[in-house]
Design a protein around this nucleic acid. Structure first.
Lengths: 229, 229
DNA sequence: CACAAGTATGCTGCATACAGAATTTTGTTT
DNA sequence: AAACAAAATTCTGTATGCAGCATACTTGTG
């Protein structure tokens, strides 16, 4: 149970199946993605292959493959002959993405009410309760991570692979924005209220209600981060 | 006007702005994607880099970059040390994807009613009328292409870049299935009826109605292609 | 002193080369 | 003859090298 709860926390371990040897370009993808999310590489930064390669201790070949991958994820832009730059998201880009995310999460909530097992819902409840503890302590980072975990968990409970995959791509693009989007206390309280409604709707398997809350929650997220852009 | 109407037909030309020199890996991405969609590379096929490279007349480096890209699009799967294989979509994968697509198109329709100009709606009407001509003549391939164009156009009229991008990824995955999903005459008629409702709802800017039709239309698409898997 | 043209450097795009892993083939043993 | 083991071949993963283009710098001219 504890291990399954932990499994809900981990984003993309995929530890089932045969042992897979980690490849270099996958590691680079993860590394560069993190560098972007954590703000080490700011939007507009040009990524020199030789430079970055030496910095990461890898040759240009796997690095280029990783960059290609991140381009298709929408985190980088690539002008032929001119190299890759960290993508700059306009306010409209962020707003548009959040609209889509809200819709996807709404759908996920609806499907989760239908397909999730009671045990799985209890696991989400545990994540929720832990998150509430962190809110009581005003411990921001663990709260943030548990928050993300809950949303990811709902996605997973939809049991819809395609939904999970498109959501995670969009989510990755905005992770950095959310990371820096520091909310005031009153807005934080509002988000917490949303989450209480969420878990109740999920436990009641009230698909329409959960769906509406999730979509509205994302709309409010826009209000919270719009100033941070 | 005619040129703009044509612009709606073309998928990804982007001929505005400065001249961009086509890069090899982009060409390879497009080529291999088409090979998969057209069934030249069937699901489960293992893609030998040397082999395929000689076949396309390119070296392994840009080919590998292209494969990475297609992996992130979900058309290929990559087991480290064992190469890339054309992804096999289960019936559930297809159904799940169509559910998400239906939801995304529903959202797109809602947004299109809000954001599209009258001129743009007239262009969709033109596409629709041309498609109806092709239906009268029972000319399948042009009908199919115009059908796709209409759906793409509605996506574009949503004026939401994020929505367009996630939709096109999902759409690409299913293109081949749709390609082979040959419908009987009565189902074809049903699809046409849907499209008539669609264009009417769009012209009336009836967001709720258009959204519902698009989502339902995708549900019916599942009924049409489910036997083809 | 300012602007333009030419040159020079450096970076990207692609090809090739090399090392390690996986698969296949062949030989030997039961 | 079948099964297992070992060697050889083939393929992936990574590094390096070379050609072409973009940009920056320098130099010459108005």
């Amino acid at each position: 149970m504890a291990s399954e709860g932990a499994a809900l926390l981990v984003d993309d371990l995929d530890s089932r199946g045969p042992i897979v040897r980690p490849t270099l370009h996958d590691a680079i993808v993860a590394r560069v993605r993190d560098m972007i999310i954590e703000g080490e590489l700011t939007p507009g930064t040009r990524l020199h292959e030789g430079n970055l390669g030496k910095m990461l201790g890898v040759s240009r070949t796997p690095l280029r493959e990783a960059l290609k991958f991140l381009v298709s994820e929408g985190l980088l832009e690539l002008s032929p002959g001119r190299g890759a730059v960290v993508r700059q998201f306009s306010a409209k880009d962020v707003r548009d993405s959040l609209i889509v995310l809200g819709n996807l999460e709404g759908l996920a909530g609806r499907l989760a009410c239908e397909h999730a097992s009671d045990a799985e819902i209890r696991e989400v409840r545990q994540l929720h309760d832990r998150m509430m503890d962190m809110y009581e302590k005003r411990d921001r980072l663990p709260y943030f991570k548990l928050n993300q975990s809950i949303h990811s968990a709902i996605l997973r409970l939809s049991k819809n692979e395609a939904l999970v995959s498109v959501h995670s791509v969009l989510q990755a693009r905005l992770k950095r924005i959310r990371y820096i989007g520091n909310e005031g206390p009153e807005k934080w309280a509002g988000a917490v209220a949303d989450h209480i409604e969420m878990i109740e709707a999920l436990e009641a398997r009230d698909a329409d209600r959960l769906s509406k809350i999730l979509t509205a929650h994302m709309e409010k997220t826009w209000e919270r981060v719009r100033n941070a852009i």
